[in-house]
Write a protein that binds this DNA or RNA. Structure first.
Lengths: 247, 247
DNA sequence: CGTACGTTTGATCTTTCTCAATAATGGTGG
DNA sequence: CCACCATTATTGAGAAAGATCAAACGTACG
């Protein structure tokens, strides 16, 4: 389950969502050179200001993108799931504009920048897939702006829970029953633009109203429609249904 | 100044920021087929849910990306400047996840989806440039999340003003003296996640403290360093300095 | 088994929102 | 060119969502 081959396969599955890859395309992706690392919770995969030399693929574990304001506040920008290529971003820009930190202990595969770049440019189908992949990330980011900018605390927290549930299910990391939330309430606060105290109160409120059930970090959603309504959630922006046209 | 050739030249200049284009690359970009349209303020260039058939390039005028929450609130996600290719986004995804609306009367050039897509895939340098371009947009979006999520009202408004000033200057649409802000205070509010009333109060406050000078929609920044400090602004995320390595 | 971290709760305070009214401004038709 | 109308900007008073401060409680891990 956590072998590198499996992780590349997961990356592959995501790329194929938006582009038709030939057997050769697939092969050359799986043949990409890489170096394996195991990193502890809290390690940085990328730091703002870095000049990237490689792109890391998350084999197992979770990570998040973050930036700090001048005043020292932290904003979490995105959560990376197992199988995500963490910094496709950095392969085509020369300096990293945000940091990526691990949410859990992780296995990562580092792919040299040039190898991936060359693949993207010489194989049009892979190029398309990579562009589409970054565009989906951008779409998620746009919804994140909406969440933080124009929803109240309850809807914000509900929305981020809906997003996790759907993204995790799409990768078969969650069942309809529920999922492990890989974040502390403080991290949830930095993702939603709230304070940890208020996140706690909102979570308690959602639980009290029967919209979620919690035991430790595990979250279950007994009435999906109800939570979706509270969150104003519509999964269109995840671009999950877009299957590449048959070859 | 507002001929289509000029606008494509402006697009070209942006693309060349991140990739080295050959004479041929340039030529094929400028030879792209297009259809010209003049549209009134408030028109939609793209609507959420649309299946895109073309990519519009802004020849003159301003536009903005937006999404609506279920509750009907609007969040502005980005402002598009003259010379921007508005929906490179949509060329590689099959359904548009947000809307683009005009901030002013605009001249736009519609480039057929297939033409641009083919160019991106057959000319690696152009492919690189397009990926880099969308990555820079994503970086701006990330800073937008930080702005709305983790800065107080004063810093938020100051930050968006700093961003405009720098982006406009980079395209020679503003001088050190100041610039025309193409938005109403209500739109500014939807961009910063505040209410129009509060945006007004913050603007008044910034002016009272000598951080900005306003007459109608024109904004001057008498003390750049002071405003930058209030905003916590650092232009790294705009990736402006990144010049393509010499060929 | 104790220590550090995360969660929960209460009390109070502040920022920002809401509602409402007034004043400018710009555009339009006569 | 002027008067009118619609939109945008400005101001005040009161309300509310969420922040801050502080303390207690759990739980996991070394």
């Amino acid at each position: 389950m956590t072998s590198p081959e499996y992780a590349f396969a997961s990356l592959l599955r995501q790329l194929e969502r938006h582009s038709v890859l030939s057997a050769e395309d697939r092969q050359s992706l799986l043949a990409l050179p890489y170096r394996l690392r195991r990193l502890d919770l809290g390690s940085y995969l990328v730091r703002e200001g870095d000049e990237p030399t490689h792109c890391s693929v998350l084999i197992s574990g979770y990570a998040f993108r973050q930036k700090l304001t001048g005043a020292g506040a932290r904003q979490i920008l995105a959560v990376c799931l197992p199988g995500d290529a963490v910094d496709l971003q950095n392969i085509f820009l020369d300096v990293s504009d945000h940091s990526v930190q691990l949410l859990t202990r992780c296995d990562v595969a580092d792919v040299p920048r040039e190898a991936l770049q060359e693949l993207a440019l010489t194989r049009p189908a892979i190029g398309t897939a990579i562009i589409a992949f970054t565009l989906v990330e951008a779409s998620i980011l746009r919804e994140w702006v909406v969440n933080v900018g124009r929803r109240d605390a309850r809807a914000r927290v509900a929305h981020i829970l809906c997003e996790f549930a759907v993204r995790l299910e799409a990768r078969e990391l969650a069942t309809g029953e529920g999922f492990e939330l890989p974040m502390t309430q403080e991290q949830l606060a930095d993702a939603t633009g709230l304070t940890p105290v208020h996140v706690n109160r909102v979570l308690m409120g959602l639980a009290r109203d029967g919209l979620i059930e919690r035991h430790r970090r595990s979250v279950a959603i007994p009435d999906w429609e109800a939570l979706r309504r509270v969150a104003g959630f519509s999964e269109l922006y995840l671009h999950l249904d877009q299957v590449a046209a048959a070859a």
